[in-house]
């Protein structure tokens, strides 16, 4: 059961980051040409694959499992709470939603100003490399942390690869950035999963015995989901109240 939750967590996290990377790659490809852009994407994907291949087995073989689970659990707790906080603030209206159309327009406008060179275009290469590498690095951390703690690194890597392939295929088929993807809802689901796995593994590493063992990830998910819904409901009500009192003051 925890295998499917793990697969889903990595798949959605990677899909979210791939949507963001795709926006940058499309902006570079359309304005600067595709050859150097694809070279940048390939170089970034290669570097990320090497990172997973080298760091994954090293962590599994040389770090004691209890230490690994405490460290990984802590990392997942921090990262998961950061994602969850951002998604809650966006959902309740306290933070602007992530707008892929706006980001795409800004990237295109910036890249169009830089003079093009014939043949190899270092701007396209660098923009595509940085976009894919930086978004991918977050995925690598999720793959390594979730994969190594559960000894399912292969499954986590397959989930990430499948999500990236799906987003790339859809992006190429429609030839535009995927602004209709419910990114905030996906980010919230991933945040909930990361916090649940983080709680479970840090607890295991510290010597706790979770009721129901692996199955406790499900009740942790439900508990954090309920807490998140309540926080959003309260924050959204507060946001409306502030908006009404603000408009009353100006009137």
């Amino acid at each position: 059961m925890s295998s499917s939750v793990l697969f889903l967590a990595v798949f959605i996290a990677c899909a979210v980051e791939s949507v963001e990377a795709l926006t940058i790659v499309l902006a570079a490809g359309i304005t600067r040409g595709w050859r150097s852009t694809f070279q940048g994407v390939a170089a970034a994907l290669g570097t990320l694959a090497v990172l997973v291949a080298v760091l994954g087995p090293t962590l599994v073989h040389y770090v004691p499992i209890r230490t690994l689970r405490i460290v990984v659990g802590g990392l997942l707790l921090i990262y998961g709470m950061q994602w969850l906080r951002k998604a809650i603030l966006r959902q309740s209206g306290f933070k602007a939603m992530h707008d892929e159309d706006k980001i795409f327009d800004e990237q295109v406008s910036e890249l169009s100003k830089i003079p093009k060179s014939s043949g190899y275009d270092s701007t396209a290469f660098t923009v595509a490399f940085k976009g894919v590498f930086l978004e991918g690095l977050e995925v690598v951390i999720i793959v390594l942390t979730l994969g190594t703690s559960s000894h399912r690194l292969g499954l986590a890597a397959i989930a990430a690869g499948a999500a990236a392939a799906m987003v790339i295929a859809i992006g190429l088929a429609v030839s535009k950035q995927l602004s209709k993807v419910p990114e905030n809802a996906m980010k919230m689901v991933v945040g909930l999963m990361l916090v649940s796995f983080g709680s479970f593994w840090s607890g295991e590493g510290l010597g706790m015995t979770w009721p129901g063992n692996d199955a406790s990830i499900i009740w942790l998910l439900a508990l954090y989901g309920l807490a998140t819904a309540l926080i959003i409901s309260y924050s959204a009500r507060l946001r409306r109240k502030v908006a009404i009192s603000g408009s009353g003051q100006t009137a």
Partner: peptide
């Protein structure tokens, strides 16, 4: 964990 999340969101709000 929930208390930390509530405090962090509360601080931002």
């Amino acid at each position: 964990v929930i208390v930390t999340l509530v405090l962090s969101v509360g601080w931002a709000v």
